[in-house]
Design a protein around this nucleic acid. Structure first.
Ligand code: FES
Ligand code: FES
Lengths: 148, 148
DNA sequence: CCAAATAGGACTGCATTGGTTCTGTATAGT
DNA sequence: ACTATACAGAACCAATGCAGTCCTATTTGG
């Protein structure tokens, strides 16, 4: 229903938590405990975020995860992308041949533009922003200027 | 994966098609044929759009559907909302008690703002806009001005 | 009355998601 | 060297929601 997966929500909460103390090393167990979410689930998410190179890891006793970049250098779009794959509102927004309506479809390119706007909006919000109690309303200066 | 349902995509294509000849009456069979999508599926979508009062219908021989409002008065957000229900990126974005992380969650209010930005963006695009070959890029003037 | 067309459900197969479990590997401390 | 801790990666399963179909009214023009 045009919403992010619950796991993605968890992931952002995890990342924001870590963004509050960057450089610090968090174990999966510790994070799961703080968050109140089962440990295996948290572990899986952290692995995904690691593969996307948003986290760095240390194995062994006393190991754990830490942010790979500064909090302001990681965007919400990065986190969403790491868990859900590339952002594509419509089937046809990701490459050709995915949508059965392609031939003669009038909405494809316009959807792609909407898609791009969403991506930009998510890229504009960093973990550092999310860690603040409340960020300013995002202002969408929308297309009152349209094609002729 | 943060994408609209395929049926929603169909619905927008249908609406845009009708927006190109407003006032005209389209039967489900005719639209299904034009679109290359099975007739029952199209019929179901049209019923949903009708209930959301985006369409008007005429029964009986020679009946069909037509836009309930002018093309510029119907937004993409309306269509998405009609098919998928109210727009809510996160569980917690729609009312209390939906998200298990609620207590002490630092990202809730910020997600709600992102949510609102998306809604505004979709509301800003009308069927008339979508019917044009290509609308101007949506410009998101994002929150470089954040909370202190 | 009949045919065309919508109105409204109920129903089903399938894909995705949320969540678990298992095996393997690296590391710190004893 | 041994062991406990903690990550790495994959396979696995149950449940939810989606895409699509079907069936039975009801309305209306001819
Ligand atoms: S190509 Fe997918 S809806 Fe137009
Ligand atoms: S309340 Fe749902 S993620 Fe914070």
């Amino acid at each position: 229903m045009l919403r992010i997966a619950k796991l993605t929500d968890y992931a952002t909460v995890l990342m924001v938590r870590m963004a509050r103390e960057p450089g610090c090393c968090f174990s999966a167990a510790q994070l799961a405990d703080e968050l109140g979410v089962p440990q295996p689930t948290v572990a899986k998410l952290l692995k995904h975020l690691l593969r996307a190179q948003l986290l760095a890891s240390a194995r062994g006793v006393g190991g754990g995860y830490s942010l790979a970049l500064a909090p302001h250098a990681i965007s919400v779009a990065d986190v969403v992308g790491a868990i859900e794959g590339p952002l594509a509102l419509t089937e046809c927004a990701r490459g050709k041949g995915n949508c059965s309506l392609e031939r003669g479809c009038a909405t494809r390119t316009n959807w792609q533009l909407i898609n791009r706007a969403l991506r930009v909006a998510l890229q504009a919000v960093s973990l550092a922003d999310m860690a603040r109690p409340q960020l300013q309303p995002i202002h969408v200066q929308a297309l009152q200027e349209k094609m002729p």
